[in-house]
Design a protein around this nucleic acid. Structure first.
Lengths: 164, 164
DNA sequence: CATGAAAGTAACTCTCG
DNA sequence: CGAGAGTTACTTTCATG
């Protein structure tokens, strides 16, 4: 079985939207919202789970209220891959770690208590290679819900002029 | 009432850990795991929700299986704040948007179908100001679970040498 | 559709100021 | 003794075959 890229109907879309909005909704309530019987919606959710489209359900916490006063983004220059991965594994302050193309081959999102704590985390990576740290001032969008990708949904508001 | 930064006991820690691992667990099962009765955990969870520590519960989806073949990070240079925010609002491909300190005043995480789609999204922001785009090759850590911050938990594995 | 499990509600207990 | 947190018992709602 390959990647199974498509075939989500409008009903799946609504199920996925609702579960991204509130993962603790009951199947009965979900059924009401998408106009399906409870067993029908349960079966659809089960398939979305077992196909891996739904990876899981997670409580989303408020980092500030947990005592993390600062969120930061650290860009880390190329370094020995395994060493970076190992350092990330040893650093629970790293919430997201992306290995990316370009000069800064890593982008890390971190949550720390204060500047002193930020310093300690940044220093761990500085020792490996060059880093560049930015502090998050605010986040107008966070973990935005997504729908199945469909080319026809892409707004071609931009008309690219392919030169000459 | 101020931010209520602390006072989470070991029981809250476990509740938060379990709900980050599986938000659809039943209160009865959660109670078993933390050795409390079902009404007792339900009440604790209710308090964590109403205090805002738990912001919500979300299904986590597999972007690749939804048809988003590429994830990217766009750094956007300073531009008129309101215009950037507006453009973000009009761009559903932006999953996370951070306004940060430093020269690149925005860091955007996006999910797109393919290179053509990436081009379309990047172009929207290029028109405003300078941008720099990287493609995510892999992510060794994603939305890592967190615990309430406690200074005593910070591993001072790094002994900073304060110069001279 | 029936059966068992879970959620919600209420009355009671225990402990700690 | 009063406030807060937990438990048990009971009813309603939900999940599953």
């Amino acid at each position: 079985m390959l990647t199974e890229v498509s075939e989500f109907d409008a009903c799946d879309d609504r199920i996925l939207a609702e579960l991204q909005r509130d993962a603790r909704i009951t199947m009965a309530e979900l059924g009401r919202r998408v106009h399906l019987s409870q067993p029908a919606v349960t079966e659809r959710v089960r398939k979305l789970e077992s196909s891996g489209v739904i990876k899981g359900y997670r409580a989303e916490l408020d980092l500030t209220k947990l005592g993390y006063g600062i969120r930061g983004i650290i860009r880390v220059a190329r370094a020995e891959y395994a060493r970076v991965v190992k350092l990330i594994e040893q650093t629970p302050e790293v919430i997201n770690a992306y290995n990316v193309t370009g000069e800064d081959s890593w982008v890390l999102e971190i949550a720390v208590i204060d500047v002193q704590h930020l310093d300690a985390v940044v220093t761990k990576f500085c020792i490996l290679t060059e880093t560049s740290t930015a502090i998050v001032l605010n986040a107008p969008r966070e973990n935005a819900p997504v729908l199945p990708a469909r080319r026809e949904n892409i707004k071609h508001s931009i008309q690219k002029v392919t030169g000459k």
